[in-house]
Structures are given as C-alpha cells and as structure tokens.
Simulated scan of single mutants.
Amino acid sequence: MVVYRPKTTLEQWRILQAVVDYGGYAQAASALNKSQSSLNHAVSKLQNMLNVQLLEVVGRKAVLTQAGEVMLRRSRDLTLNVQSLEQLAVNINQDWEPEIILCVDLAYPREALFPVLAEFLPMSRGSRIKIIDTVLTGSTEAVTSREADLVILIDTPRGYLGEALCHIEFVLVCHPDHELASLTQPLSTNTLSQYLQIVIKDTSETPDEKTGWLKSEHRWTVSQFDTAIDLLLQKVGFCWLPKHKVTDLIADKNLVHLQVEGSAFKQFTAFLVCPSPEQKGPGTALLSQLFLQHREIDLPSFDSSQNN
C-alpha cells in the first residue's frame, strides 16, 4: 500500500489564514508573535510546494487569487477538523464520551425529545449522538443488553430503575369511512378480530408476543407509526396509536376514535433508564439531567413532617 505523504503542513495553512484574516503579513506577524519574514517564507514555500499562486500583492496588501480563495476555504475545514480531533482527545482524557447512544421508543413524543437535544448541543463538547428507534421488546432489550447509554421506553425491565418522563395514551382509530366506524360502539374484541389490524413491528429479533396491543388474526405489520397512519387514511385497517400522533387528524375528522369494551384508551408511562449507571459518563449524565428538567409529568410530593 502506498502511503501518501503531505507536501504541506497545518502550520503553513494556519499562517495563510492569519495573513488573510488580519489583512497582511505585518498584522499577522504581530498577532502570531512571529517575524514577518518567517510568515513570508512559510507562504512562499506553501505556494512552491503546491505550484499554485495563493496570494498576490496589490498595492501594499496581500490578497487572495481565485485559486487561493478555493484553497483557503478548504484549508479552514482541514484545520477545524484537526482542532475538533484534538478536542476529542482532551474529552476522552477527561472521561467525556466521544459518542452517546440514545434508544427511544417510537411512542415517545418527538416534540419532547428535540428540545432536549437542542439544549444539549452547545454543551456536548463534540460528542456524537446516535439515536436508535425501538419498539416493545426491542426497547426492553436496549436496556438489558446495556449497549445503550440512555433508553426511553414504556415501562422498565425487572431489576432496573427509571425516571418517569410523561404519560402516553394509546387510542384505537380508523378512517371515518371504514366499516368499523359505522358499527355500534363500544366494539367487542370479537368484532375487532374480524377486521384487518395495523401493528407496529417489534424491533427485537426475538419479540415477546405477550407484549404489545390488541391483535387481530388478520394484520399487517409496519415499522413506523407514520406508515400506519398513511394506511388508515387510505381506509385500510384499524390501529392502536399514540394519542399525540392522531389528535389533529381526529379533530379534522380524517380519523375517528373507536370505543372498545373495557378500554376507551390505554395509558402508559415513558421512563428514562440508564442501563449502566455505574459507568455513566459526564455527557450521559448531563443529557439525562436535561431530560428530567423537560419532563412533562407531575411527581408526587412527600411531606416528611407527616412521618414524625
């Protein structure tokens, strides 16, 4: 394998940037605490090595050539990437995670997710965030496998603790022109079993059939709630969906809420779980704190004086 050996150095590119940014060799030399002759030599050597003229003197000022503008723009990306790489090394030495894996159940409202991530960004120190959508058993496995740093899921697996973030209601819906909408309400489970149900695919490779929502023998499986909604809008099937996903569609009479015997709706609680709290890094801890600050649930208050 042929190893490429760069002809230029980062220092030469930084000097070129300084000459342009400060408006000339003298000003750049003062800012960098270097001699003007050393800056002239560095830029001259850079141009000779590339066989491209980057600067030309107009009057008493060095200005970029057309080629120089292109090369300078690309050089800024180069030096910025090196700076980010060096900062990443500092973060690693300070135990700041280079990557945080966040698994989020599809039922969790994205309207609650995005503000947290937006607030985290300026404090993230360059840490990458990997967001993985999970459903049902797949959400549980994200915790038990301990491959994720944080998991938002419905209910918590045995042996793990979680912080409640919000309540999520599921409602049964179909198109207003679907036959189910014209039947006497509430509907029995036997009636529902005669119609096509749209279900969301469990992201686990070994799904637990005991989990999930009401199922019909005749069902189609999709991977996203949005796909299920698209099918419903085409008058295909019925589906249990998070209320926040269909509130506007119901209000606009594009979908209808079906009443079911013994279950007008199903309510669940979304929890934030750190699968390996003993290994929680500072980035994960900060992101977890932000989720708790943004949570949309009323926590019970305890008066310690009542125990006295």
Rank of each mutant, 00 (worst) to 15 (best):
M1H: 06
P6N: 09
K7V: 11
W13Y: 12
R14P: 01
V19I: 11
G24K: 01
A26D: 09
Q27K: 15
A29C: 01
A29D: 00
S30W: 11
L32V: 06
K34S: 08
S35G: 14
S35T: 06
Q36W: 04
Q36Y: 03
N40Y: 09
K45N: 03
K45H: 09
M49Y: 07
L55F: 00
E56G: 01
V63N: 12
E69R: 15
L72D: 07
L78H: 04
T79V: 15
N81I: 11
N81L: 11
Q83F: 08
E86Y: 06
Q87H: 10
L88S: 13
A89T: 09
A89E: 15
V90N: 01
N93G: 11
W96Q: 10
W96A: 04
P98Y: 05
P98G: 00
E99L: 14
I101R: 15
V104H: 00
D105V: 10
A107P: 10
A107F: 11
Y108R: 07
E111R: 14
A112N: 14
P115W: 00
L117M: 03
A118D: 12
S124Q: 13
R125H: 15
S127M: 02
S127A: 12
I129A: 02
I131P: 02
T134H: 10
S139E: 05
S145T: 12
S145G: 15
L150H: 01
L150D: 03
V151Q: 06
G159F: 08
Y160G: 02
Y160A: 01
I168W: 00
E169Y: 15
H178G: 01
L180F: 00
Q185A: 03
T189F: 05
T191D: 13
Y195M: 04
L196I: 06
I198H: 08
V199P: 05
S204F: 03
K210F: 12
L214N: 06
L214G: 13
H218Q: 13
T221F: 00
T221K: 12
Q224V: 12
Q224E: 15
T227Q: 13
L232H: 11
G237I: 12
G237M: 07
K245S: 03
T247Y: 10
L249V: 07
K253S: 13
K253M: 12
V256H: 03
V256K: 03
H257K: 11
H257I: 07
Q259G: 04
E261I: 13
S263C: 14
K266N: 13
F268L: 11
A270F: 06
L272K: 04
C274A: 02
G281A: 11
L287R: 11
S288M: 06
Q289S: 14
Q289K: 12
L292R: 10
I297G: 05
I297C: 04
D298W: 12
L299Y: 02
F302Y: 10
D303P: 08
D303F: 09
D303Y: 09
S304P: 01
N308S: 14
